[in-house]
Each structure stands twice: as structure tokens, then as C-alpha cells.
């Protein structure tokens, strides 16, 4: 991508960020990465009633080289994991990952020898979507949240700054085991 190499500085960078974010979020091309039950709900989301075309995303690309969003829809087995990573590596930057359903997010109910306990062991995940399988509305909500994230994504020095801040916040965060109360 040539944009990163020709970034201006200062307030102009912010303007470029907004413009590129808006352009990027408006034409996300998902790769078909249907694995299990969630894939059927993903297809339903693309079909008539839920109509993903409203968000400019109805064209699922067969080739990862033409896609920038991977919706991991279903349980990832140990045998599938290397394939998934290869497909991810073949996608051009910038790219995003939605982990659809509990199996992809954490292994879900299949806590056993065959299933990878969360696809974030293999690829970085932007949005975790719970549900078994999530309803199409939930998938659309996840996609819209991702759109917001893409819209506000930073470029150049701003991106480095944002990454540093996020890391500092993560280091300061209270571990779950030390939390008190209902943890809701």
C-alpha cells in the first residue's frame, strides 16, 4: 500500500486518516472463511433478509488476495490452523479479523484435543463475537463496530502513538483474578 509511505505530518495527517478510514470502512471485502455452523449464519447474513449489501460487503471474495476482512466463522481444528494462518498471510494489508462465534473466540464447548482454543492463538483478532452461532444481527453489529474501528484507525506516527498507549493501558489493567464483586 502506497499511502503509508507518502504520509504528511501534523493536522494534515489527521485529515488523511479520516479520509482513508472512511474509504476503507465503506468498501470492506470479506474473505470466505466459513468453517462450521457460523458459516451458515454468515451466508444468511449475506442473503436476502439481512442483506449485507447495505454496508457494501455482500461480495465475499474467494481469493484471500482480494480480501481485507477475514470472518473466522466456526471452530478451528488443529489441522485447519496452519491453513488459516496461510490464508491470513496471503491477505494484503490493511486487514482485519472478526472471530465469529464462541468456538473461534475461545474454543467454546469443544475444550478438547482437536480444537484450537481460540483463533487468537494464530491470528490477531479485532472483534470477538459471542454466540453459538451468533444471530445475523449480531454479526452485523460486529461488522458495524469494526467499521467504527476502521474509521478511527490511525496512520503513521499517530498509529505508533496509539499502539504505545494501548500497550500501557493493557499493562496497567487490573487482572481478572484481583477484581472484586460480581465482575459484570
Amino acid at each position: 500500500m502506497g499511502l503509508e509511505e507518502k504520509l504528511p505530518s501534523g493536522f494534515l495527517l489527521t485529515t488523511v486518516e479520516q479520509a482513508s478510514g472512511w474509504v476503507r470502512k465503506s468498501s470492506v471485502f470479506p474473505a470466505t472463511f466459513g468453517l462450521a455452523c457460523c458459516a451458515i449464519e454468515m451466508m444468511t447474513t449475506g442473503a436476502g433478509r439481512y442483506d449485507l449489501a447495505r454496508f457494501g460487503m455482500e461480495v465475499f471474495r474467494g481469493s484471500p488476495r482480494q480480501a481485507d476482512l477475514m470472518i473466522v466463522a466456526g471452530r478451528v481444528s488443529q489441522k485447519m490452523a496452519p491453513v488459516l494462518r496461510q490464508v491470513y498471510d496471503q491477505m494484503p494489508n490493511p486487514k482485519w479479523v472478526i472471530s465469529m462465534g464462541v468456538c473461534a473466540s475461545s474454543g467454546g464447548m469443544f475444550n478438547n484435543y482437536a480444537i484450537v482454543q481460540g483463533v487468537d492463538h494464530i491470528v490477531p483478532v479485532d472483534i470477538y463475537l459471542p454466540g453459538c452461532p451468533p444471530r445475523p444481527e449480531m454479526l452485523m453489529d460486529a461488522i458495524l463496530k469494526l467499521h467504527q474501528k476502521i474509521q478511527s484507525s490511525k496512520l503513521g506516527v499517530n498509529a505508533e502513538e496509539a499502539a504505545r498507549e494501548a500497550e500501557e493501558a493493557a499493562l496497567k489493567a487490573l487482572p481478572t483474578i484481583e477484581m472484586k464483586g460480581l465482575l459484570q
Binding site: 455452523c37 471452530r75 481444528s77 464447548m109 469443544f110 475444550n111 478438547n112 484435543y113 482437536a114 480444537i115
Partner: peptide, 24 residues
């Protein structure tokens, strides 16, 4: 590529919970 080990998982849940696995 989608082997889930459901048959093995069933052996660690009671008979009624089995339906939750086989449905998937």
C-alpha cells in the same frame, strides 16, 4: 479439517448433555 472430537467430548458429559453436542 473440521474434526471437532465431539464423540470424545460426549464421553465426559452426561446423557442429557449429549444432545447439546450431537446437534452441532
Amino acid at each position: 479439517y473440521l474434526h471437532t472430537g465431539i464423540e470424545k467430548n460426549l464421553e465426559f458429559r452426561n446423557w442429557t448433555q449429549g444432545t447439546t453436542f450431537v446437534t452441532r
